[in-house]
Design a binder for these strands. Structure first.
Length: 493
DNA sequence: CGCATTTGACCCGCGC
DNA sequence: GCGCGGGTCAAATGCG
């Protein structure tokens, strides 16, 4: 229809295509937008000219020209389609790379923060590799990146020099499957050294049961390493969403292996494990909120040991990235989180609905993503409390940390939408006006559709990671908050 | 028949 | 040491 659309396509093609000739074809096309309405095979398009000229030779000559032009148009059009498809593929790839990058960045940022805290307040001069201050500025971030990639090993080796981790191992981890994450890499490394039980029974790769027998080692180092890995394995991400369904579709295949009545909640808690690969250690718990049974709380634990479909990868990335952020800081309490730069002060708006809540409180560090709030609401007095009956919730937090709003939903949704670029372009995606116009929490179907949408979850990952990443960067400045200021039109009350 | 779900039993950690 | 609660196992059952 309107040439604007074609201009846009041209721009995308210009971005990726290096072929000058094809660009020139596009320009010809865009300079004559009217021709775009005709199908390439519509040869009659130019025949009207015949009525204005009586000379037969001129007629055939012009006819030939028009045919050539139409053929050129058809070529250009097919080329456009091809490049457009390639463009979409590249976008998807870029999105995946971005997700992985942000997960790494989160871990890096939190590790740096931890080092800073140690330098500032540490009285115990425990010169572990991780604790070593970053006096070696010459190595810059590459050193830090290397450090956190070696976190699992470092925790095990503590005072030892790094080591035995061969470059082959490292490269294998770095080039791991798309679903693999930092934490998973660390787990895998650990598994490589403890692939047998004391009984000598082999363990499936990536599978470390919570109640795995302790090694017979008397080494304190090993104990600490095990504690570290246990914490990492037990880090959780909890997702609250309104849904009538018994389970929210997240792209993974799950098998139910248990159900229990939890104390204080009339609704049973269901236990699922991932069955997309044998020995995948990922578990999830599903339980309805005691106060509002329309709210389904899904808690993820562990990291996949297999490639994931895009929809599942987004959620898995969120889980491991959030867990990494929580744990890499080694924050022994929620205060550690809250005092850290991970939570910018500007986001701690009392009364604003909490969408992402961090908790490092016992027993497990937990990130809670609350998708139950209406982004159009301004629930000053409707702060949605985390259910005191939900396990590993925030109930043990000090009162000032309860329901701590790290980010409100409107902002997050805004970030999600903006991070999607032109959301309407994506096939199968909810139209943007629908996203904005309807309260997300209005219907279970909407929530289910959104949360099940791979684009949404991918965007959610990007949003969360960028939030945390931005918050850290902003902390360097005088408490400025670019993310917040970018969205100040939302429910800041 | 194979796979998934159900459900009671069991294990383990924690607090008293 | 004991009880409680969370988490997991595995036999029984259901289903396609």
């Amino acid at each position: 229809m309107e040439p604007v659309d074609h201009k846009r396509v041209v721009n995308e093609m210009d971005f990726f295509a290096g072929d000058r000739s094809s660009n020139r074809h596009v320009k010809i096309e865009t300079e004559h937008p009217g021709l775009l309405q005709d199908q390439a095979g519509d040869v009659n398009t130019g025949l009207n000219l015949l009525t204005t000229n009586g000379a037969a030779s001129e007629k055939s000559s012009q006819n030939l020209k028009e045919k050539q032009r139409v053929n050129q148009l058809a070529d250009t059009r097919s080329e456009l389609e091809r490049v457009n498809a390639e463009n979409q593929r590249l976008k998807l790839t870029l999105n995946q790379v971005n997700n992985n990058y942000f997960a790494l960045q989160m871990h890096l940022v939190s590790l740096m923060q931890r080092q800073r805290n140690r330098i500032a307040g540490s009285s115990e001069a425990n010169n572990t590799k991780i604790d070593r201050p970053m006096e070696d500025k010459t190595h810059g971030e590459s050193i830090v990146a290397r450090q956190f990639m070696d976190l699992g090993q470092a925790a095990k080796a503590e005072k030892d020099e790094i080591s035995e981790s061969s470059s082959r191992d490292r490269s294998a981890e770095l080039s791991g499957s798309p679903g693999n994450t930092i934490v998973e890499s660390m787990e895998r490394r650990e598994n490589n050294s403890t692939t047998t039980t004391p009984e000598g029974l082999p363990q499936p790769p990536g599978w470390l049961p919570n109640k795995a027998p302790k090694l017979n080692s008397t080494s304190k180092d090993n104990e600490q390493a095990q504690q570290t890995m246990a914490m990492i394995r037990k880090a959780r991400v909890s997702v609250r969403a309104r849904s009538e369904a018994s389970m929210i579709s997240d792209g993974c295949q799950w098998r139910k292996y248990g159900q229990k009545m939890a104390k204080g909640n009339p609704c049973p808690r269901a236990y699922y494990r991932c069955t997309m690969a044998t020995g995948c250690p990922v578990r999830k718990q599903v339980q309805r909120c005691a106060e509002d049974t329309s709210i389904l709380v899904t808690t993820y634990e562990g990291n996949h040991n297999h490639p994931l479909p895009p929809a599942a990868m987004a959620m898995a990335s969120t889980t491991s990235a959030a867990a990494s952020t929580l744990l890499s800081g080694s924050m022994p309490s929620a205060d550690g989180i809250m005092n850290s730069s991970l939570v910018p002060k500007g986001m701690m708006l009392p009364g604003s609905p909490s969408l992402v809540t961090l908790s490092a409180s016992a027993p497990f560090p937990t990130v809670t993503l609350d998708l139950t709030h209406n982004p159009n609401q301004r629930p000053l007095n409707q702060l949605h409390p985390i259910s005191p009956h939900w396990p590993h919730n925030l109930s043990s937090l000090p009162p000032h940390l309860l329901g701590h709003p790290v980010y409100n939903q409107s902002k997050l949704l805004g970030t999600v939408l903006s991070s999607q670029g032109n959301i309407n372009e994506l096939p199968g995606h909810l139209p943007q006006n629908q996203m904005q116009g309807h309260p997300v929490a209005d219907t279970a179907a909407t929530v289910a559709a959104i949360t099940a949408d791979p684009n949404f979850t991918a965007a959610l990952v990007s949003a969360i990671t960028s939030i945390i990443g931005n918050s850290h960067r902003d902390n360097g400045g005088a408490n400025s908050n670019s993310t917040t200021s970018r969205n100040t039109t939302d429910n800041n009350t």
